[in-house]
């Protein structure tokens, strides 16, 4: 199943280290502004809307 990893920008270095560990340097994933845990439902919805184009781009969806 096609998937996209999503993490906040605070975890970019870790995400890249994990990708190298698995032998996929340069692995494509979506990065969104930190933090998420303390956001309201509206804030979460806004983050999702903002990241959607990037998710579709990584999945190779052409509009």
């Amino acid at each position: 199943m096609p998937t996209v990893s999503v993490c906040t920008d605070a975890f970019r270095i870790t995400a890249e280290a994990m990708a190298r560990t698995y032998g996929f340097p340069g692995f494509q994933y979506a990065s969104i502004p930190h933090p998420v845990a303390s956001l309201s439902a509206e804030g979460i919805a806004q983050r999702v809307e903002e990241m959607l184009p990037r998710l579709l781009e990584i999945l190779g969806v052409e509009e």
């Binding site: 975890f11 270095i13 870790t14 280290a17 994990m18 560990t21």
Partner: peptide, 10 residues
């Protein structure tokens, strides 16, 4: 394990 701070030790 490679758990270096700022990398895999978060």
């Amino acid at each position: 394990l490679g758990l270096r701070p700022h990398e895999l030790d978060q």
